[in-house]
């Protein structure tokens, strides 16, 4: 059992995109705020704080979930992946990010960090989702700019590419379209 008093400053340690990070916060602080304000990882966005919009979606121990519905103290000791960790080691875009840019799939980009994290999880699933399953996997993300069409096309394209590569080279290590933190 761990017990923290209400205004106590709690040490929280997470592995953020492969780097050990720590900070202090009250038990009530939302993980979204902790990431943005304490750790300075402002790539994760906040659009509603009730779980509806999906902008704050991150991966905790690999699982895509809402950081606005998680307390920072709950993430202590966990491995967190955010949009900042997606690009390739040399800083260039990963396959999925590239596909979004090529297809003009984003406009203001505010929703994108959350969508990318859900897609990152999706691309690691085996079997990969079928085309018709993809909208259902993304239905928890609101985008107010794009009307989703190009976004879905980019995601489908990436999934298809990964599937094609794996079929061609079944022996090689799974390629996932996103950089593994």
């Amino acid at each position: 059992m761990k017990r923290w008093k209400q205004s106590e400053l709690v040490p929280v340690q997470v592995e953020l995109n492969g780097v050990q990070r720590r900070g202090l916060c009250e038990p009530r602080v939302l993980l979204s705020d902790f990431l943005r304000d304490t750790l300075g990882a402002t790539g994760t966005h906040v659009g509603c704080e009730t779980g509806e919009c999906g902008a704050c979606t991150i991966r905790v121990d690999g699982v895509a979930q809402r950081s606005c519905l998680t307390l920072a103290v709950q993430a202590d000791g966990r491995c967190i992946e955010t949009v900042e960790g997606l690009a390739q080691a040399d800083g260039s875009l990963c396959e999925l990010q590239h596909a979004l840019r090529e297809r003009f799939a984003l406009q203001c980009g505010f929703c994108i960090p959350g969508i990318l994290m859900t897609c990152a999880e999706m691309l690691k699933r085996r079997p990969l989702p079928e085309d018709e399953q993809i909208p259902g996997l993304l239905a928890g993300h609101l985008c107010r700019c794009t009307g989703y069409t190009d976004l879905l096309a980019a995601v489908r394209h990436t999934v298809a590419e990964v599937r094609r590569r794996e079929a061609a080279h079944p022996a090689s290590a799974p390629s996932v379209g996103v950089h593994d933190a």
Binding site: M1, R3, W4, K5, Q6, R28, L30, Q74
Partner: peptide, 17 residues
């Protein structure tokens, strides 16, 4: 839209709960 303060307990065993 931020929660009011509370004490937080991480339960490790059902008896604690």
């Amino acid at each position: 839209m931020k929660p009011a303060p509370f004490e937080y307990v991480r339960i490790d065993h059902p008896d604690e709960l």
